[in-house]
Every structure is written in structure tokens, then in C-alpha cells.
Write a protein that binds this DNA or RNA. Structure first.
Length: 453
RNA sequence: UCCUGAGUAGCUCAGCGGUAGAGCGGGUGGCUGUUAACCACUAGGUCGUAGGUUCGAACCCUACCUCAGGAGCCA
């Protein structure tokens, strides 16, 4: 197997006669020699390659522009100049694939807006290379968090016929031809089907069998949302735990966030240092801070009082019973707490049917975890386990008992208290990298009117 | 979807009624090891699209398209 640059750059001693392959980032030429900076994507760092002008294969240098792929044979030696520990003294230079002057990535910086238009090339840049290396490691760390705690990974369906109420608009999945009259029974599945907006309801069935489970997969929302925090296709982690109440749920959510922040600080130090330098100066300090103390918990009712007493003039009035607006959430996380904060026990009227009603008759056992800069990254609840209360809530929301009979069965046969939450993978990634637009942490982002790849 | 702002060279931008500009990137030449190298020369444009106002529009007006920031919805 070819050796990666990551392995080569970790060398403790000089190494003669090695082979390096990668893409050229920059070329600097002078009379006697040329310098190439080459990366293979295995890590953030580049390897400087020194090509003596007298070298026979130096005649390919004019064809080697930024973006070209090369294979270089040479000796890894300690670099005599400042700026890098190692460099490769080339003995033979081979051009693998040319990149001509139309190659869009230049030596100088580009705007994220421009790079979004070339999503197939942007992972070759420092910023996006780092983002997607972190994304991969964070996905693995996510599985590790749950697996270490004995949770089972459940693959809930991507195509579903159930609408997880309150989760937004659905994408229709159909094989029916457009424009021809047809009944839902004629469709591929014999009924209307959609891309999933949440695996929660199916996840609950497995929590009520295997105990503690989680899902981690793509989720789809057909909302016409045009913000830096929304995408039509995103990845969500949805743990569901039997015998957990709302407070155990909140504790797990906090541990979950802290575990991942800690894991990325230890496993991706070079990448996070880069983000701290070029994306968000306070990033590492802020991440460190989130680990240091327990997340604050504020009930919805307390939050409303805090907002009313803040002396702030909000654009949207603060009224008990109404949803908290972005400006309210921002005030709580960024001004009042200055860190992650969990808001819990929301008015039941603004929450979906499956959330457990509290004894006060007014609130539901729901919680949102808000972080500075992004807002909600987790939304969860204790689920309604009482058959009569659940069916009454469904009736109140106008839901058909028939469509959800399998869900109601969980309360009919051996019902137990249980709870869970949904975490936006990209939102957590934004929090960890400091990148402020969700389109820049998804390899090929899907947003309204935009799915070019 | 609503509000605000912006679309000028491959990229980043200046020009804001009177002959289309710069830096970077490309090409050519120079330079004793460079670090987004440096120096000189050079090529490169339907000023987002379509109408309108004007003697004259990149510039003013209208509509549309695209992008960004904010809002709503949510993870």
C-alpha cells in the first residue's frame, strides 16, 4: 500500500529513497531549484519538495501548476530552512495528472461562497480539508460514545409512511408517473411514502426491546428554510432510552456533547488550531470552557421570567405559552449564561403529541440544548408512556389511531417510561469547528433550489 | 416565504452619469533555498439578465435571476 504523507511527516529520522504522491498546492521557482508544496489529503500539513534545476526530470516543471498531481521519488531530509521540519530532496519527478490554468483554486484565499460553487474541488483547500477530516473523526467518536455505554445502533428506515409530527414538511417518495391520475394504492408501496424526518418513533420501538439504542443517519426536511443553520438533507443522532426520565435524558445529552468536544480537542488538535486561527479566534477557549462546568438548566417558565426581567427590548414579545424566538434563545445562551444551556418543561400546547405531559397539566417534559452562536443543537423529551394520555393527545392533535396503532401498541404491551433526543450532527460540527454556515460542513449541501451534484 | 444588501477579468475588489481599472492567478523573461517568494513585461471584459430614463448608463429607474446577512420553521 502507498504510504501517506501523514505517516511520512511523522518520521523520526531522515529516510532515503521514498515515494510521495499527491497534489501540488504551490510552486516557487528560482534559477537553481524549484519548491513544490504537496499534499495528499491525509493530514493538514504539506510536504515541501525541492527540485534541483539540474535534475533530468525537472523539465516537467513548466507543466506542473497548482492542482497538478505528481509522484516524487527522493530523500526525506531535515529542512535547512525555517518553516518545516522535513523536506523531500527529489531524485525523480513525475507528472501524473496535469491541471491547467483554468484550475479554480489559487494560492490565495477564496470566499466560502465561491468555493460552494465548486463543491467537487473545495475539499482540496485547507479549510474544507480540515472540516471534512474532523467530520469523519467526529462521526466515529459519536459511535464510540454510544457503543462504550452499551447502546445499540439501530438502522431506522429512510423511506417511511409515518410523519413524526412537529418535525416539518416531508419529501414525497413515489414511482407514480407525473400527470397521470393514480390512487395512492397504485404506488410502489401501496400507500404514500416519504423520506424520513426522524427515526424517533421507530427508535422507540427498539428502545422498548433492546433498552438503550441510537440512530445515526440522514434526515430530510422539505421546509423552504434559507438560513445558515438549515439544510434539506442532514444527519441526525437520535438516542432513545428505556427507563430514562427527562433529567436522565438531559444528563446524557450533556455528556454526549462534552464527550465529542473533548474527543475532537484531543484527536484533531491541528485542525482545531487552524480553525482558531482563521475561522473563529475564541474557538479552542470556548470549547475548553464547555468542558469545565455543568451545563445550566433553566425551565421554560424561569426562562420567560428571565427574559421579562432582562430589561431588553425584544422584537418578538415574551409571552408564557409562546415558543421562544431566536433572539430569546440567543439572549439566554450568549448573554445570560454565556455557554450551553438546557431549557426544559415547555408549554405542552406548542409541543408534539408524543411528549409526556407534566403533572401541572400545562407543560410537557421537553428539553432543548442551546449553544452560543448556533442555538438549538439538541431537542428531546420524555415520551408519553400512559396509554390513555397518549391516545387523548393524539385525538387532540387530530391524528388517526389506525396509522399509529403500532406506536400505541408500545403503551399497550409492557409500557415503560422512556426518553430520547435528536442531535443535529452538522450543528455540533459547526460548534466544534467554528464554521458559521451549515453548507460548509456538508460535503454536498442540499438547500432549497440547490442540489447540483 | 419575508426584510436588507450585493452581483464589474478565472478569483478578490475599486470605479457610482462622460475613453473599463488594480492585486492575485495565467504567459514570457530575470533572480544563489523559497515559505500566499520577489522584480519586469504581457494577454485577459456582452460591467448578472431584460426593459426603461438620458445627447450619453457599469453608475439612475423597473422587473426578473443568483448570492449573502437577518427573520420565520426546526436539528
Amino acid at each position: 500500500m502507498p504510504e501517506t504523507l501523514r505517516q511520512i511527516l511523522a518520521s523520526a529520522e531522515p529516510r532515503p529513497a521514498i515515494t510521495v504522491r499527491g497534489w501540488v498546492r504551490t510552486k516557487r521557482e528560482s534559477k537553481s531549484c524549484a519548491f513544490l508544496e504537496v499534499t495528499d489529503g491525509s493530514c493538514f500539513r504539506v510536504l515541501q519538495i525541492v527540485v534541483d534545476a539540474a535534475l533530468p526530470s525537472a523539465d516537467v516543471l513548466p507543466s506542473i501548476l497548482t492542482g497538478a498531481s505528481v509522484e516524487v521519488l527522493g530523500d526525506l531530509i531535515a529542512s535547512p530552512a525555517a518553516g518545516q521540519k522535513w523536506e523531500l530532496q527529489a531524485t525523480e519527478l513525475r507528472l501524473l495528472g496535469e491541471a491547467d490554468a483554468t484550475y479554480p483554486l489559487q494560492k490565495k484565499g477564496h470566499t466560502p461562497e465561491f468555493l460552494r460553487t465548486i463543491a467537487h474541488l473545495r475539499p482540496r483547500t485547507n479549510l474544507y480539508g480540515n472540516v471534512f477530516r474532523v467530520r469523519s473523526r467526529m462521526a466515529f467518536a459519536m459511535h464510540r460514545f454510544f457503543q462504550e455505554r452499551g447502546f445499540f445502533y439501530v438502522h431506522t428506515p429512510i423511506i417511511t409512511s409515518s410523519d413524526c409530527e412537529g418535525a416539518g414538511e416531508l419529501f414525497r417518495v413515489t414511482t407514480l408517473k407525473q400527470g397521470t391520475p393514480a390512487k395512492p394504492e397504485d404506488d410502489f408501496f401501496g400507500r404514500p411514502t416519504y423520506l424520513t424526518v426522524s427515526g424517533q418513533l421507530q427508535g422507540e420501538t427498539f428502545a422498548c426491546a433492546l433498552g438503550n439504542i441510537y440512530t445515526f443517519g440522514p434526515t430530510f426536511r422539505a421546509e423552504n428554510s434559507n438560513t445558515a443553520r438549515h439544510a434539506a438533507e442532514f444527519w441526525m443522532i437520535e438516542p432513545e432510552m428505556a427507563f430514562y426520565d427527562l433529567f436522565a435524558d438531559m444528563t446524557l445529552a450533556e455528556e454526549n456533547v462534552k464527550y465529542l468536544v473533548d474527543a475532537m480537542l484531543t484527536e484533531c488538535p491541528e485542525e482545531l488550531e487552524f480553525f482558531s486561527k482563521f475561522v473563529d479566534k475564541d474557538l479552542v477557549a470556548r470549547l475548553q470552557q464547555t468542558l469545565d462546568k455543568p451545563f445550566e438548566r433553566i425551565s421554560y417558565t424561569e426562562a420567560v421570567e428571565l427574559l421579562l426581567q432582562s430589561g431588553r427590548r425584544f422584537e418578538h414579545p415574551v409571552v408564557w405559552g409562546e415558543a421562544l424566538q431566536t433572539e430569546h434563545e440567543r439572549y439566554l445562551a450568549e448573554q445570560h449564561v454565556r455557554g450551553p444551556v438546557t431549557i426544559y418543561n415547555y408549554p405542552k400546547a406548542i409541543k408534539p403529541f408524543y411528549m409526556r405531559q407534566n403533572d401541572d397539566g400545562k407543560t410537557a417534559a421537553a428539553m432543548d440544548l442551546l449553544v452560543p452562536g448556533i442555538g438549538e443543537i439538541i431537542g428531546g423529551s420524555q415520551r408519553e408512556e400512559r396509554l390513555d394520555v397518549l391516545t387523548a393527545a393524539m385525538q387532540h392533535h387530530g391524528l388517526s389511531q389506525e396509522d399509529y396503532s403500532w406506536y400505541v401498541d408500545l403503551r399497550r404491551y409492557g409500557s415503560v417510561p422512556h426518553a430520547g433526543y435528536g442531535m443535529g450532527f452538522e450543528r455540533l460540527l459547526m460548534f466544534v469547528t467554528g464554521v458559521s454556515n451549515i453548507r460548509d460542513v456538508i460535503p454536498f449541501a442540499r438547500t432549497p433550489g440547490h442540489a447540483p451534484y
